[in-house]
Nucleic acid binder design. Sequence first.
RNA 1: GCCUUAGUGGCUCAGCCCGGCAGAGCGACGGUUUCGUAAACCGUUGGUCGGGGGUUCAAAUCCCCCCUAAGGCUCCA
Length: 621
Amino acid sequence: MRLLLIHADYIEFTALEPAMPNPERIESQGKKERVEECLVAFTTVEKSDEESPEEVAKNAASTILEHAASVKATRVVLYPYAHLSSSLSRPESAMEVLKKTEDALRGTVEAVRAPFGWYKSFEIKCKGHPLSELSRTITAAAREKAAEAAEEAAPRSEFLVLTPEGEEFRIDFASPETFLSLKVEPPLIQLIKNEAGMKEERGAPAHVKLMKKLELVDYEPASDIGHFRFYPKGTLIKDSLEELAYDIAVRDLRAFKIETPFLYRLDEPDIADQAEKFREKDYRLTVEKREFCLRFAGDFGLFRMMKGATMSYRQLPIRVYELSPSFRLEQSGECVGLKRLRNFTMPDLHCFCADLEQGRKEYAELFSKYTRLTQSMEIEYAVAFRVVKYFYEEHRDWFVSLLKMVGKPALIELLPEMKHYWVLKHEYQAIDSVGGNTQLVTVQLDIEDAARYGIEYTDESGKRRGCIILHSSLGSIERWMGAILEQAAKDQAKGKPPMLPVWLSPIQVRVIPVNSTFVGFAKDLAEKVAAEGFRADVDDREESVSKKIREAEVDWIPFVLVVGEREALSQPPSLSVRIRGEGVKSTDFPGLIASLRARVGDRPCLPSYLPIMLSMKPRFA
RNA sequence: GCCUUAGUGGCUCAGCCCGGCAGAGCGACGGUUUCGUAAACCGUUGGUCGGGGGUUCAAAUCCCCCCUAAGGCUCCA
């Protein structure tokens, strides 16, 4: 038997005239019947069902009921529909099976059966959620067999944990004891638990509130879901992260920086091909009768640019960097704070290599750079590799050498066969304050796309050959922001004062004059700090010192200086600085600058986006 | 997209169950205070109760539809 199940807002049908000599006798000819909020089962009884109608009916009913329960439908419409199979049973058998199925449904749900043997008109409104349309084949044999067959068709991945020492531990998601007892760091265990589907009810990740409270980022109701506004402080953090990505990609890795359009024509075959992979996840728009989509990654324009490039083996590997604002039409229920957005910024780095050997060398290079990047973000993370099994087995030692760089064990997923365009990828996953994980950095080793998109170089013998491509992202800028806020929330839960890394703090130094007499002195000091390249402001408001200190703490400002008569007159000059998490210390100006410099390290430090006098700053949130 | 929960001055929230004058704290504004390491004091201002429809003499409160957010499901090339 064939079933087509549709979860519908309603179905209306009218039996018009007999479709065969002996149709089912009915009284409702010509009368419209309407059923609301139901699961419609279009049903075709096949020749092979004639042998055991009881079994087929029973199995069909249980499949339908199972699905009705999962979509929470309490009404089922059994609709005879001959067009799902070419091997139809005799009408009498079909009637029998349908009636038996209907009987088996009764009691659990409200069952309606459309008349058999009539030409019918019908109108249906399908709900359109992922489970709303589904087809099933029912046989007399136990239904489990069909399920097993389906599983065999999509063989499962195997999982293991690999340590930097080269030890392997097989793990089985179905038996938690195989990984819960492993002596590895908590973030990795948490990642494995999440992948194994061991999810407890968790609250909202902390960054959703923090991003508003700290006046960084907020929802913009006048835009679409998942498009955010960035206040000056949030913009400063975003720009700083982008600057770091630029430093790594362009200054460090000497990548060529490019820019490509956001909008692409869908009548270009290669664009349509890439869009096709993403199906319903792209934004489409029609302009002057031409259909376009917004890019979901930088690949669209990059691949076209590289297709037109003439490359010699002597120039490879070639690295290309683009900071790509990207658009993905994620399901509305899936957008969460800074973790999953419809508009986000991806620092994409692609490397075009001559062969697999060079590809692996590049991979290791990126792996090393990105490991340092992740470590400098001061967050907890876990490492996961996804790799086609044969590739892992051939290059096992190489994987161990990668893990030595990061100094952590990793989760390895072994895919039985090439399922995607890559043979290998890895991810750095941050663990948030409620135990969820967020993918940050990723590098993918792609051995297929070059051929598909015609990205070629000329080898020593003058032959044109396809490149090996490394796709990598330094991690969406917004996700990094989220992960950094999550880390702060985790620190707070452990009793530490929450803070941002100093290089990302929108205001790094606040100077608080004890009264209005010292505002000028405070301003001079703040300007001196700014001249050294750090972000400082003065709380010149008419408030008590205690209150200003409290607000500086609530704003997570890492360095707070209170200045008054003591500082203004001290000889030699001295300062009293309140360092977040460390209490009040006595120092002098060079000492203050040295502390700042030590904390910022070699990371970018942009100028402040806020007025130097706090009284001049409006409140955004 | 589905299910659940939530939406009340700029912010955090009370009021909703059981319909009867829309409340508090913070902020902002005005004034007093000139202050030394986590909230000085007094006053003023500010609300289409997310939007629309319905029931009712009367709706923030009850009913229906929609929007937005969070959790779960599904999804995550």
